[in-house]
Every structure is written in structure tokens, then in C-alpha cells.
Write a protein that binds this DNA or RNA. Structure first.
Lengths: 339, 339
DNA sequence: TTGTATGCGTTATCAC
DNA sequence: GTGATAACGCATACAA
């Protein structure tokens, strides 16, 4: 429990000034090799490591970013957070993670905490379309970048997202071209609040319209928790035998639907096709092989991080607005109705 | 992009000294109400928020903990991290999260980073039994607490874990009492390196022995990735039709086995019983209903956090060593062989 | 090439 | 009750 030595302790032991210690620490050019060695030896002997807090204070830079995620139990957030964590580590940034969907705190409060911690930037992975923010997102002292979803009416915001509307349409187009006409859709309650879910639902409806298929609200369900999506699927199959496909607005929901269906001895994709959205890791599992729309998780995560750092360093200037093209990943849970 | 005001700006506006500003910030008793108001108003007007970095430097306390997790894509880590994040937030602590299984950095390096950041404590959720550590875990300047798994020969370490050996035996006992004699076991390659996997395997073997059942290495498999566990299960069912149960060392593996089996038109639990370990969220899904051993995720996570904070504050003293009792959760994937 | 002095934005220790 | 002033552990402008 001995206290950590500081740069003065090192200086004393090496017989130089603290400034010189700082110089070798920061690889300054004009330090005599012999002096450098003395300092290095003293550092070694004392096991000295510079205090990053003190360093942050004087440099006005913490090399830390904030990452505000949604429900970590949701594979999408966990998997993207993992990528961001690893990329940040490679680039010598630490990340303070916080829950943006917490019941205890509003997003504004979470953001404030991060700003008071003097993080160098923030990635916000979950935000409502009309979030009430006390923090000025656009004109903040540090860059804030939305990831995965953004806000309405915020033309100057930084974001890295995928085109959810388009992704949804691509999924529907694929199903429709494969002969599906009666396609059920499962979203979540409160979908209107989030750009992602709102756009995906819009895509569903527009695709129907574009193909001259009437919208039937009986085929649409708002899941409020996991069980309800399952119950809906079960009921649907019994009451609407003409339904040949179910489009779930997230892979997580699709997985539940798959479970339910397999438990009811229905065959996927022979009897019914299932389409997901996100392409979480397990979707690619050879025994799940869920057809889905890729959010380009890895790419999106890396882009979010590198662009945030570019904003921090000043290499890029606001607004950074990147919209990735969604990609259809055809695997084994969808099939043409024509056999 | 205006710079943030500091306490001197507030002081000037309020017509007091910066010390007084600090006093109202920290709720000091002897400040005249009128003075307090002046300061409060100035704070409000300027939107002043104290700089936590500066505060940390002088107080020698960052109100930040480090959390070193394993693969976040693994639901166990994501779900426990979520609990820790939320608990920490309630208690006004921030958490810097890092990947302990990263290929780029050793655990020692990750720990060092955290120590240099002056976190007040660290929770280590993944460590090898014989990890080579350059950081002195026991006599560190800040408390370090192992979570989920610990190291060998470290009698003085702080930890919060469950009794994996016992959990495994309970699972086996249950299967055996239900008539299962030929029980396959799936672990992971390199299981010997981790206390959790090592102990669980030990439990499997000891339970066999305790019940006079011969150990058959044909029934044991070391999965090196997801697909291999599936392939093993498939082969197993064909080459060893007498196997009536599969005990997977983690729920994640059990889920894959379930998938594989259902794809092969075998019935769970009628034709084969599946036992997991961990009790991750999805295990409780009504259409998965995996029988498993509970790691008491939520409880373990909360205990880890509260005990770490108690160590930090000095309320507790090292070593904190908590071993939770594992709990059998019987759901729908296991059944007696007697019908 | 090295050292002195100063400051980063707070809290803490004294005075008054 | 309030205000100077000195830390906290570094980096940096300026001197030498």
C-alpha cells in the first residue's frame, strides 16, 4: 500500500529536475542520452507511471470517450460496444460506458456527467427522435456523435447510421419478389419514438404500397416484451394461415419467432419465411442461419469511433454524417413461395 | 464552442472568492444564505459545472472504477456488465470498461492502464488460473476484486464467485437421479486455464465417480468454436444412441446444442435432456426454457460492486471472499428417463 | 541541453 | 463567515 511515486521522486533519484523527467516521458528530442538513461533507471527503480489525471488536467485532454448504450443485454449493443471498446483501445483511448435507457437518469443527465468528466467526445447509441436535451448537441465543447439512430430536426448533428428505411424496403422487396404477399410485421411498442424502428416500419409500409399490396393492420404487431412476440406469432399462424412470411424488426425478435415456430412443428422456411434485421452474431450460426438485413455492425462501430476521434483531433469538422447502405443477407430462413 | 467557465468566473460574477464558490459547491455549513444565493445564481447564469478531473486530482479520488470483462458478445459478460453499470451509476461511480481477453494487450497491461488512470478500484471478470501478473494484486494501492473466476494460489485475493464445482455436481446429481447414466459433457478448449471451466469439468467427473459411473472420454468434447459443438452433438447422437443427456458447460453452448437437435428432428426433452450452466437471460425464455445452473448473475454483480466500493471506502478490509451457492433451475429441457 | 517558474481547476489549511 | 494561499502531479514557456 505504499504511495505511488511522482515525477519529483524520480527527479530527485536521478539527480535532475522534474522538467527533465517530463521530457524523457514525452520523448523530447534534446535530452542527452546519459541524462535520459539516469531518468529511465530511476523510473524503473521506483516503478513510476505518470498520473493520467494530472496529465489530463494540464493538457485539457483525457483521452477518454463516453459511450452511451442502450440495453446491453441486447446483442446489438453488446456486440457494437465490443468493437468500439477494442478499436478505442488500439488508438489509446479509454471508454466510460453508461446506460442511456436507464430509468434513473435522463439522457441529458448521462451526457452531463460525461461532459463534467471531461471526456474528449461521446458516442450516443440510443436516442429518441424528439429527445428533450438540456445539452447543446450541435454546439457542444466536445464532439457528440449519434450512432445507430439519430434525432429528428437536427440537421447539424454528427451521426453514423444505416439507412433503415431502405433496409426495410430491400427486405420486403426480396420477400415480395419471392412470391410472398401476406407478410406479417413485428415491431415494438413505442416504435415511433426511435428513428430506427420508425423508419423500418415506414419501409414495410412503403414497400407494400410500391407493390400494390394492401396494408393489413391485423398482420402488424407491437411487441412489448419477448413473450408477446411469441404469442402473436402463434396466434397469427393459426388465425391467418395465408401468411407466408414474418418480417421482424430486429433479429432478437426474429429469433424468438423462430423458436416459437419450431416448437409448434412448423417448418422454416418450407411453411413460413422469417426475415430479421440487424445481423447480430448468432444470426450467422449455421443452425440458425437467419436471413436478415445487415446493419454493418462492425463497420458502423469502427466508423463511429474513427470519425469521433477525427472530430476530436480536428481532422474532420462537423457535421460528420454517414449513412451506410444496408445489405440483404440471404440465409436459410426465407424461401420462395413458388417452391 | 465557447470554453467552459471555471470557479473563478463564477466567483467574479458573484462578487466572492473562489473559495466560497467551492464551499457552496460542496455544501459547507458556514456560508451565509445570501452569499450562497449569489453564488448559486452565478452558477446558474454561467451554466457552471465543476471539473471532475481537477477535483479528482486534489481529492485523490476519481469516483471511477475499472471493469475488465471477457468477450462482450457472450451474454454472460454483457448481462453482468449491465448490472454493474447500473449499480455503479446509482452509487455515483463511473466505469471504464476494458476487454481482458484482447489479443492486443495482456491483462497486466490493461490493469496498468486502469491504475494509471487512477481508478478507485477494479473488477476483473476474466482471469486465467495461472495468469502472469506484473501488477501486485494483493498489495495494490487500490482494491482489485475478481468476479466470476479467480486465480490459483492467491489466498489473499478479493473475489466474488459461485462454487462452480458444486454447481456442476448439483447438475449431474439431478440428471443421474432422473435415471440418466450416459451423460455427455461439452467444455471448451483450454478449459484448464480458467477456474470456472476447470471446476465445472471436475464436478462432472466427481459426480460420475460418486455415483459409480465410469468416465467415458468419448462422451466428452472440447468445443473450440460454436460450430464444433454442434457437429459434436450431431455425431454423438448418431454414434452413441444410448446417450440420454448432454451437459453443456455454458448456456451459450447449450443453446447451440438445442438448435442442432431441433434441426435434426430429435425431441427435447423426450428423447434427450439438455443441461446448461450460467442462466443467461434467454435461458428463461418460455420457448427455450433451458434447465440450467444459476450463476446468480444479478446478485453476484451487485455483490461485486458493493464489496469493491466497501473496500474503497475502507468499510471492508481485504480479503473479501464471497462464494455463492449455485442453484439448479429446472425448466423444460430435462426429463426423467423413467418416463 | 537543462532548470525555474507558472498554470491546469479544484479542495484544504490557514488566517482574519 | 470569508478570503488568501498552498497543494494535487504533471506539462510548458521562458531563461540560462
Amino acid at each position: 500500500m505504499s504511495q505511488r511515486p511522482n515525477a519529483y521522486d524520480v527527479a530527485k533519484l536521478a539527480g535532475v529536475s522534474q522538467t527533465t523527467v517530463s521530457r524523457v516521458l514525452n520523448d523530447f528530442p534534446y535530452v542527452r542520452p546519459a541524462t535520459r538513461m539516469k531518468v529511465l533507471n530511476a523510473i524503473e527503480e521506483l516503478g513510476f507511471k505518470p498520473d493520467e489525471i494530472a496529465r489530463s488536467l494540464v493538457k485539457k485532454k483525457t483521452n477518454t470517450i463516453g459511450l452511451i448504450v442502450g440495453n446491453l443485454a441486447n446483442p446489438f449493443y453488446a456486440e457494437t460496444a465490443q468493437v468500439i471498446l477494442n478499436e478505442a483501445s488500439k488508438l489509446n483511448y479509454d471508454v466510460i460506458m453508461m446506460d442511456g435507457d436507464s430509468k434513473n437518469e435522463s439522457l441529458s443527465e448521462v451526457l452531463s456527467k460525461l461532459l463534467n468528466r471531461r471526456v474528449d467526445g461521446v458516442i450516443v447509441a440510443t436516442v429518441k427522435r424528439r429527445e428533450e436535451l438540456t445539452v447543446n448537441i450541435v454546439d457542444s465543447t466536445i464532439p457528440i456523435l449519434f450512432f445507430n439512430r439519430s434525432m429528428d430536426n437536427l440537421e447539424q448533428a454528427n451521426y453514423v447510421i444505416v439507412d433503415d428505411l431502405k433496409g426495410s424496403k430491400i427486405a420486403m422487396q426480396y420477400l415480395i419478389e419471392n412470391g410472398h404477399k401476406s407478410i406479417a410485421y413485428i415491431t415494438i411498442t413505442g416504435y415511433q419514438e426511435y428513428s430506427t424502428f420508425n423508419d423500418r416500419f415506414l419501409g414495410y409500409k412503403q414497400a407494400l404500397q410500391d407493390n400494390g399490396i394492401a396494408y393489413n393492420e391485423e398482420l402488424v404487431f407491437e411487441a412489448n416484451n419477448h413473450n408477446s412476440a411469441l404469442d402473436f406469432s402463434m396466434n397469427l399462424l393459426q388465425t391467418n394461415p395465408n401468411v407466408t412470411a414474418i418480417f421482424a424488426s430486429t433479429d432478437s425478435i426474429a429469433l424468438e419467432v423462430l423458436e416459437a415456430i419450431s416448437r409448434c412443428n412448423k417448418k422454416v422456411p418450407e411453411e413460413i419465411s422469417i426475415m430479421g434485421f440487424d445481423d447480430i452474431n448468432i444470426a450467422g450460426n449455421p443452425y440458425v442461419k437467419l436471413t436478415t438485413i445487415s446493419q454493418r455492425k462492425e463497420e458502423m462501430s469502427k466508423l463511429a469511433l474513427t470519425n469521433l476521434l477525427a472530430l476530436i483531433s480536428g481532422e474532420s469538422s462537423s457535421p460528420v454524417q454517414i449513412v451506410l447502405e444496408p445489405k440483404l443477407i440471404v440465409r436459410g430462413t426465407t424461401k420462395s413461395t413458388k417452391g
